[in-house]
Simulated scan of single mutants.
Amino acid sequence: VLKEAKKACSSLNQPYWYLEALVVAKDEQGKKLGSRMLKQCLFPFIARQGGGLFTLMTHNEANRHFYRKNGWMEFDERVLRGKEMSLESWSYKTVIK
Results as ranks from 00 to 15, higher is better:
Lys32Gln: 11
Ala62Met: 13
Tyr16Thr: 01
Ala25Thr: 05
Met73Arg: 12
Lys39Phe: 00
Gln40Phe: 07
Val79Leu: 07
Ser35Ile: 06
Leu42Glu: 04
Trp17Thr: 07
Gly71Tyr: 02
Glu20Lys: 07
Phe75Gly: 11
Lys39Ala: 05
Phe75Asp: 04
Gly30Pro: 09
Glu20Asn: 08
Pro44Phe: 03
Arg48Ser: 13
Phe54Arg: 02
His65Cys: 13
Leu22Asn: 03
Gln29Tyr: 08
Leu56Ser: 06
Leu42Asp: 04
Val23Glu: 01
Thr55Pro: 06
Arg68Ala: 15
Trp17Val: 14
Asp76Phe: 01
Phe75Cys: 05
Glu20Phe: 03
Lys26Met: 01
Leu33Gln: 06
Tyr16Lys: 05
Gln49Gly: 06
Pro44His: 02
Arg64Gln: 13
His65Leu: 15
Met57His: 15
Gly52Val: 14
Gln49Thr: 02
Leu22Val: 03
Gly50Asn: 07
His59Tyr: 08
Leu38Thr: 05
Asn60Ala: 15
Asn63Glu: 12
Tyr67Ala: 15
Arg64His: 03
Tyr18Ala: 12
Ala47Gly: 06
Asn60Leu: 06
Asn60Thr: 14
Trp72Arg: 02
Gly71Met: 03
Asp76Tyr: 02
Ile46Met: 01
Glu74Met: 14
Gln40Gly: 02
Phe45Gln: 08
Lys69Asn: 12
Phe75Ala: 08
Met37Phe: 09
Met57Pro: 03
Gly52Lys: 03
Phe54Ile: 03
Arg48Phe: 01
Leu42Tyr: 07
Glu61Tyr: 13
Ala47Arg: 13
Glu77Thr: 03
Phe54Tyr: 12
Lys32Tyr: 02
Ala47Gln: 05
Glu74Tyr: 01
Glu61His: 14
Leu38Ser: 02
Arg36Trp: 04
Trp17Ile: 12
Lys39Asn: 14
Trp72Gly: 06
His65Asn: 14
Val79Tyr: 04
Ala47Ile: 05
Trp17Arg: 02
Arg78Ala: 13
Met73Asp: 10
Phe66Asp: 11
Leu22Tyr: 01
Gly30Thr: 09
Leu42Gln: 06
Gln29Asp: 00
Glu28Met: 15
Leu38Cys: 07
Cys41Trp: 08
Leu53Trp: 00
Tyr16Leu: 09
Ala21Cys: 11
Glu20Gln: 08
Leu19Cys: 07
Phe75Asn: 06
Arg48Leu: 11
Lys31Trp: 01
Gly34Phe: 10
Gly52Ala: 14
Leu56Lys: 07
Gly51Thr: 12
Arg78Phe: 03
Val23Phe: 13
Ala25Leu: 14
Asn70Val: 07
Lys32Glu: 12
Phe75His: 06
Lys69His: 11
Arg48Met: 12
Arg36Ala: 11
